[in-house]
Each structure stands twice: as structure tokens, then as C-alpha cells.
Nucleic acid binder design. Structure first.
Lengths: 349, 349
DNA sequence: CCGTATATAGAAAGCGCTTGCTGCAACGCT
DNA sequence: AGCGTTGCAGCAAGCGCTTTCTATATACGG
């Protein structure tokens, strides 16, 4: 069968305990002995048995990263940054940790199940990214699970997610509301008064916060919103395309379309173009997130840049205990308005 | 401390063995007993200890997915498809498996280390995605590792990666060469004779194969290539931007630019625009992969569509033993030429 | 009514590793 | 020289689960 610690010990003429200590480097071992052990390990091509080790030591080197959609660069970028800090192989010192990215697909059950799975594996830390689902029972279940994880010694960090008070989780929240407000204020400042809004899926904190920011801006400028100006959809391009067509049908006099995120905004651009509208001469478009491709659109997208990589890196460091948690366990991360070619003054009505 | 199997057993007034059997459902247990156990599990909020279970059963429910760059949708899409098939939570029947996505960042060491880590965890299966690194010693080390994994009972699937003969790994290879050739032939067919090529990083199979396809097309049409027409770079937008500028400097008479992938192509488009060139009137551009955003570029990108999701799904199924391996353990997956707005007849010289 | 097949539960032996404790030299101190 | 230190290695007891084997109870056929 496979090579075990005992085999290595036999070969190196030491006890299994010594081999373990050499491998973990947490106990003094004479240099000559260490060398003998290492040689045996090498010769036998020994690979530690992870489960056995985790069981005996009651710790694991797994770190979980939960994302809503791994195919979406929004999450990919965060995950990448988190993982880089987790250390994984090639990371800085410390035992090698296995960062596992789990794709929930936005499904509440999966989210919960993954958390259970991670709990089962006795994960060292868990980072939850992206907006949360606003279903009360689900939220309660999640909070309970998180609390349990924290109690069991797993560090839980929320990255780009609203805080979960009293769970012990540390939150790095994106200021979606503020960003949304700033973005819409920019459009209002250009003179827009009739703005369509393509929101994300309902029951999502991200969706709600961005929309609230938008509405706050409208309200602050005394613009009364027509209920037909808001359409809900998914966070993808196709959804943006369809929603824009719908928006145009409902009110062709709209001079601007604000999208839930950049992918949606790109879909909106395509729909507008296909409808014979010029951007931004006829209709301005704005996105959110500032993903890498947004600057490549023609015209390039006006959007709110979220420091995805920075936030992810920080979340990763906190998860590893390499950076202190923010005061109160909560930090708000602001976005930055990026004014680009897709927004301009409204057409003369 | 945490709740253990024994606690549940005590509460349900049965032996630990029975609890284990109820949980695993692989042994007859009287319905009444099962119910009592389940109730106790629920009441105590018991969560199985993964490492202990893995140790005792000598199996694990971890499945590893190695990707070069998790922030790149190319990998994100594949990973997502693979994971969906792995079953993860929410997947079809069978024990719940934890699909872990590991980001190698294209680094050989990390690739190897992750494989070791997965081996250590006794992963049930491993899927390696994307091009391989063409360094002989590294390749040998990888092959050896893969062989060892297979020997240990881990199913290894290569998705979008060249086969690794005699390792026992199953390969679903992308026909990068054929796709590259077809793409360039399309441009040649339009009348292009002076084509720049922005290749990916050297020492990568994907880079080499696509470039070989390109050159095969040139050769087939008797076009002699100027060495200055090829520039190497990374697989990202910025690299495409810079390489295009360089290409333009070297030979302003180029009428087409073929990029290593879509991101690079987008960078190329930006560089061309910034240099005052129209696409495709002055210069045609072509990409590779057909990522979702490619159709949104203006003009939309001519490219080769790779069935990323389909291939990933299939790889996932094979990894789970739910689909038979292709004959000989090797299958070639073809791309499909997508002719769109970014390619047209060359300008009159 | 008894022997044997059939269902279900329990006892107990590990799985391969970690770690607290013990053992034993060699060492330095008074 | 005697004794406490210090440094290094081994012993052995688990970690929490799975699984083989055994035991008991019930059902069945003759």
C-alpha cells in the first residue's frame, strides 16, 4: 500500500514521533537525525496523510472561499486575491494551505451546504464573498452556521458582503449604496432626469443597496421616479440586453440607463446599439464594479470601481490572522466613480 | 467540545456503528432506529468529522480542479462547469463532494505543490485545466506525480490540456492547432497577406499550438512570414495592447492582427484605435476562445469558439466516473470559427 | 417444534498521525 | 563527585470514524 510514517521511521531508524516532528518542525530534532529522516522521506516518496494528520492534530489546512459565480470575473478577481494571501503553495512562510474555492451559483442551499462541508473538514478559515441573500430564514440559518464555525475556531471573513452582527465574523463591506448614489448623481449632474435602472436579482443585498443609492440620488435632486424605470434581472450580459429592450419599450424617452453591474451594462449597450441608439449621444450608460473589460467597451464604460483585488487581499490576510481585524469587526470599502465615455449630457428632448 | 458520533449514539441509544451506518446509508438499519438516530443528529446539530471519516474509510470527498488563472473567465467557465458536474452540494445523487479550485497562477512550482496537497488529502479526483508548461523537467515531474495519483486511485482528467501518455490520466484536448489554422485561413481568404501574431507566454503548449496553426495556414498559402510579425506576451489585455503597439512599430503595413486569445485581442483593438486605425477597415483583428464579452466588443470579435462549458462538464463527469472515458483515454475537442465584425477585407495597400 | 436462513445491532480493531510524558545521556554547576 | 539541567528521542494514548465479525432476535421450512 501507500507509504506511511512508520515506514519512513523504520527506514530512518527512528520512531514515528521523530519523523512527525521533523516534518512539522515544531520540536527540536538533532540535525543529523533530521537529515536521516528527510532522506528517508525522499527515498520513499512519502506523502503525509492529510486526513490522519488533521484528525490527530484537530486542525486542518483548508481554507474555504465561497463565491456566487466563479465564471464571473467579479468573483474570480476577489478569489484570486484572497488565495494569493492565503498563502497556498508559493505563498509566504507557514504551513501550506489549500485554498478551496466553492461555487454556490447563488443558491441558498448550496451556500449552506458548502458551509457545512467546510465545517465538516474543520476548515481553518472561510471567506464569504459577494452579496448575501435577503431571505430571513436563510439569513438566520447562515448566521447560525457562521456562529458555529467561529465557535469551532474557524475564522470567518465576509468580503464584499454585509456584516453579520453577533456571529463573530469579520466584515469587509462594499459601500454599494454610496457608490450607487455617486454614480447616479454624476448622471443627474450631466442633466439627466429620466433614468432607467436595471437592477440585479431581487432579494440580494447588493441589488438592494445599489438601487437604494440610485434612488437616494434621485430623491436628493427632487426627481420623481416612474415605477416603470426599474427592471430586475440577473447579473449577466444577456439580462442587461433584455432589460434594456424592456426599458426602451416602457419609456423611449429615457436618456440614461444605470446597470446593476458592468456585465449588465454591456448588455445594455448592445441592446441600445441594436435599437439604433448612440451611446452616449442618445442614451448614457453606467455600470458598476469596473471589471477589466469595462474600459475596453466602446465607448468605455462609466462605472464605479470597486477595489476587488485589494479587498480580497485584505480579507485573505485577516483570515490568516496576518492582519488585524478592523475596529468593531466591520470595515466599509468605498468605490470610486470612474467617468468615461459612456456617459454624456442628455440629448435635447 | 464538539459533538461526536458517540454523543449522537448515546442520545439515540444505539451504538456508534449504527449511527455511522445511518449516516452513510450503506447498511440496513431498521426504519425506527434510523429515525431515532436522525432525530438525535438533528437535536445535537451534529456534523461529521471529515478527516476522521476520511481516515477510517480511506477515501475522501475532495475533488481538485487546477486552473492557471481563476480571474480569467476562460478558466472560470470551465471550473464552473466541472464543479456543476462534480456534484458539489446541489448536484445529483451521491455523497456530497467538495470541489476545490486551486489557482496555480501559471507557476510550475505551485502546480506541483497543489498536486501534492491534493495527494495528501487523498482527493477522489483531480481535473487539470488549460495549457501545460513545456519545460522538460517540470513535465517529467508532473507526469510522475500524476502517475502516482492515478496509482493511488485518484482519477485524473486533463481538460483543455495535451495528453500525458502513460500516466493513466484521461485527456480532453482542445484542438488549438486546428482552430488557429482555420482562423488564419479565414483572414487569408479575405485577402490578408501581412499578418501580425500576438502569441501567449512561451513554453506553453497552448501558445505553441495556436501559433503552429497560424503558421501552418501561412505556409499552406505560400505566405512567407517575417520574424518581426510575431510578438510574445501574456494572456491578458494589457499585453495585447503593448504587443500591438510594438507590432505596428515594426511593420505599419500589417493588415491583420491575430491574438493568442480574446483578452489579448481586446487589448489589440484598443491599441489600434488609439493609434488611429479603424477595425476592420484598416486592420482586422481576431481572437481565440470566444469568451462571453467578445461578442460585445465593437466591432464584435472574430474568434474561435471553444466549448469550454461542454468540455468542462464532460471532464467533470469523467472525473466522477459518470461518463466513460474516450477510447484510448484521449479525445480532441474542436473549436468553431466565429466570423464577426472585427475581420474584413484588407485595405488597399 | 426445531434447525437454519434472514435481518439488525453491537463490540472492537484499527485508519495514520500528533503529542504529553517519560527516559536517558551528556553537560555544567557548586 | 554529586546533582540539577538541558537536549533529544521514544512510548503510548488517543483523535473520531468505518467496518468486519459476532451476537441476538425473528421468520421460515420441514
Amino acid at each position: 500500500m501507500t507509504v506511511t510514517l512508520a515506514d519512513v521511521a523504520a527506514r530512518a531508524q527512528v520512531s514515528p514521533a521523530t519523523v512527525s516532528r521533523v516534518l512539522n518542525g515544531n520540536y527540536p530534532v538533532a540535525a543529523s537525525t533530521r537529515e536521516r529522516v528527510l532522506k528517508a522521506v525522499d527515498e520513499l516518496d512519502y506523502v503525509l496523510n492529510g486526513p490522519a494528520s488533521a484528525l490527530a492534530a484537530a486542525t486542518s489546512d483548508l481554507v474555504g472561499i465561497l463565491v456566487n459565480d466563479i465564471a464571473d470575473p467579479f468573483f474570480g478577481i476577489m478569489a484570486s486575491a484572497i488565495q494569493a494571501e492565503i498563502g497556498g503553495p508559493g505563498g509566504r512562510a507557514g504551513g501550506e494551505r489549500l485554498a478551496v474555492v466553492c461555487n454556490t451559483g447563488g443558491s441558498p442551499e448550496r451556500e449552506l451546504t458548502y458551509l457545512t462541508l467546510l465545517q465538516r473538514q474543520r476548515a481553518a478559515a472561510v471567506v464569504l464573498t459577494g452579496g448575501a441573500i435577503e431571505d430571513a430564514p436563510h439569513k438566520a440559518a447562515m448566521d447560525a452556521k457562521v456562529r458555529k464555525l467561529v465557535e469551532a475556531g474557524t475564522r470567518v471573513v465576509l468580503c464584499g458582503r454585509p456584516p453579520a452582527p453577533d456571529t463573530g465574523a469579520i466584515a469587509l463591506t462594499f459601500d454599494n449604496r454610496g457608490g450607487g448614489q455617486e454614480l447616479t448623481e454624476h448622471l443627474i449632474g450631466l442633466g439627466h432626469r429620466r433614468l432607467g435602472y436595471i437592477a440585479g436579482p431581487e432579494e440580494r443585498t447588493t441589488t438592494r443597496h445599489r438601487l437604494e443609492g440610485h434612488r437616494a440620488a434621485l430623491a436628493a435632486h427632487g426627481i420623481e421616479e416612474d415605477p416603470g424605470w426599474t427592471v430586475h434581472g440577473r447579473y449577466d450580459r444577456r439580462s442587461g440586453y433584455e432589460a434594456t429592450l424592456e426599458l426602451l419599450r416602457r419609456d423611449p424617452s429615457l436618456t440614461a440607463v444605470v446597470a446593476a453591474n458592468d456585465s449588465v451594462a454591456l448588455g445594455a449597450c448592445a441592446a441600445l446599439r441594436d435599437s439604433g441608439q448612440r451611446i452616449p449621444e442618445d442614451v448614457s450608460v453606467a455600470g458598476f464594479d469596473d471589471l477589466p473589460f469595462s474600459i475596453d467597451a466602446v465607448p468605455s464604460l462609466t462605472t464605479v470601481r470597486l477595489p476587488l483585488a485589494e479587498a480580497g487581499a485584505r480579507a485573505g490576510r485577516i483570515a490568516m490572522g496576518r492582519e488585524e481585524a478592523p475596529p468593531g469587526g466591520i470595515a466599509s470599502v468605498r468605490g470610486e466613480l470612474m467617468v468615461r465615455g459612456s456617459s454624456g449630457v442628455p440629448r435635447a428632448s
